[in-house]
Write a protein that binds this DNA or RNA. Sequence first.
DNA 1: CTTTGGCACTCGCCACCACTGAGTGCCAGG
DNA 2: CCTGGCACTCAGTGGTGGCGAGTGCCAAAG
Lengths: 338, 338
Amino acid sequence: MLSERRLEVLRAIVQDYVGTEEPVGSKALTERHRLGVSPATVRNDMAALEEEGFIAQPHTSAGRIPTDKGYRLFVDRLAGVKPLSTPERRAIQNFLDGAVDLDDVVGRTVRLLAQLTRQVAVVQYPSLTRSTVRHVELLSLAPARVMLVLITDTGRVEQRMIDCPAPIGETSLADLRARLNSRVVGRRFTDVPQLVSDLAESFEQEDRGTVSTVLATLLETLVEETEERLMIGGTANLTRFGHDFPLTIRPVLEALEEQVVLLKLLGEAKDSGMTVRIGHENAHEGLNSTSVVAVGYGSGDEAVAKLGVVGPTRMDYPGTMGAVRAVARYVGQILAES
Amino acid sequence: MLSERRLEVLRAIVQDYVGTEEPVGSKALTERHRLGVSPATVRNDMAALEEEGFIAQPHTSAGRIPTDKGYRLFVDRLAGVKPLSTPERRAIQNFLDGAVDLDDVVGRTVRLLAQLTRQVAVVQYPSLTRSTVRHVELLSLAPARVMLVLITDTGRVEQRMIDCPAPIGETSLADLRARLNSRVVGRRFTDVPQLVSDLAESFEQEDRGTVSTVLATLLETLVEETEERLMIGGTANLTRFGHDFPLTIRPVLEALEEQVVLLKLLGEAKDSGMTVRIGHENAHEGLNSTSVVAVGYGSGDEAVAKLGVVGPTRMDYPGTMGAVRAVARYVGQILAES
DNA sequence: CTTTGGCACTCGCCACCACTGAGTGCCAGG
DNA sequence: CCTGGCACTCAGTGGTGGCGAGTGCCAAAG
């Protein structure tokens, strides 16, 4: 077991390293933190910490830097979440309040988060799996051409063009629209398939083909839209990464372009509470020298999607976690209002 | 005036420099290109080219590299557009054919372009200024709450929530919907304002407030949506930029995050034909060491939007131009079909 | 058992230096 | 106008030595 002071030393190392980006030695530590012991003692502690794998030396005769394991301990036991200042909170609210639609909310959120944390921000669009249907609209554009518009409670709109096997009359279409809506409005996506399964049967023979096609398209759209989208921003902050650019930054940029990777990344985060994944804890190889701080957000109690930031393992965890949490809360509020 | 051979020397310099990324000297030139003259002669030519500002030396006793002006001459008079190979064309078509909706088309295009050119790709969404209205839908969600859905001929859908000053009945709403559609469907966005200007007057006193609000929102949406969106991809390719990373790459990433900057960038491109902006020809400072190759694309004859790539001034212009042109053509086809 | 000061050692970093070689400009002769 | 020759420049390379931050270990003190 590590003594209280050794933890204190680790905390000091992490803080200094995050601040200076340079390996930190025993002497510098005693000078910058009031540990109340001599450098020699700190050296002993550092040896112990290294023994346990919390810190490491880049090369002999250099200071120590925290390992992933060290950061993990720091995050779990030594660091709190640093709340934002009141002006910051106000700025967030003002900025997000100006949003006009869902795209705008997500866009603003991603910019805000990037600016606040000075890191790469990732915001997932509110998921549709837990969403409900607000309205289904059918428009006849041509005799045998129908447009399906799906509106969700999170404010998202999706449309599909449908080529019908046979022309359908306006009245039949209006009929279908009405019946469809009476069955699915307010219901969850996942419940829709069984709610509409028998709908085609109640129509005239001549319209059944078309109705089936429309229903099939609706279900397809629901499934497709359950695959989630996301937005990223602040990639310019990657330039603050380290000195050894090309090698570090390249795989990160590549990973960030793969929506699939990012979705998986966010998906791995716990549904509730903040998740911090440090360095090699990230499954994706390109992100082995980055940490991901993610948290769920939602309009009500339930999280409907996640957002977070990606940055170097050497990041200001308390500050970042504070910003991420605050932004998630305000976005949740905004969504609840609309 | 520059002799034929001197132009040939310039071409050789550009080609070699693009290939090797290293300043090219007179001896290397005569070895790798059959110029039929000695290094000494080439040196004289180079001196002349430098005098005219087409090439420069990073430092004395180093080879020459092309200047922006040199690239300009190369692009204008020495380089053709290198057509893609048949397999490449086929790959493009296959890849784009799989797209299911507009977002998907744009997304695939941007990935394709980034991969093909190994540079940063920028694709503007089909512009709405030249678009027409396909349908306007009004949905009553609550007594005094209406949702406006706008569908364009390019397949885009926009929605707005409207809080009405007074409740409006279903019949009045249906009436409004019908009249609205009969006036604006098939019309250009720019024509809509005057087409609906007198519409409110024909309604009952009690509904006029709501009708005006709805119309105002519609116009607002049209204006807002005329501000164009775009998608970028391939930022990982920036790592191939040069050796002096942080300084070069940072402003570029920053510029790329500013949609406004990019839109202006594409906006500066000619409406028809390909536009190449080299280095300082770009208005934006952060892009002073990049070149932009852009071209309009559209479903018919008219260009409805633009796409292009951003890369180092030291890029393979013929190849890049070929790829950009080919992709634009195929996207145009896809859009025309849907 | 912990803490401390002392001490020898390691090793990355930097400044200095000389050498090498690619590349240049110039010039005189074909 | 082209060419070969020649002197010159200068970035890059590699070797050397001193500096200093930082370490590990140890013996003595608390």
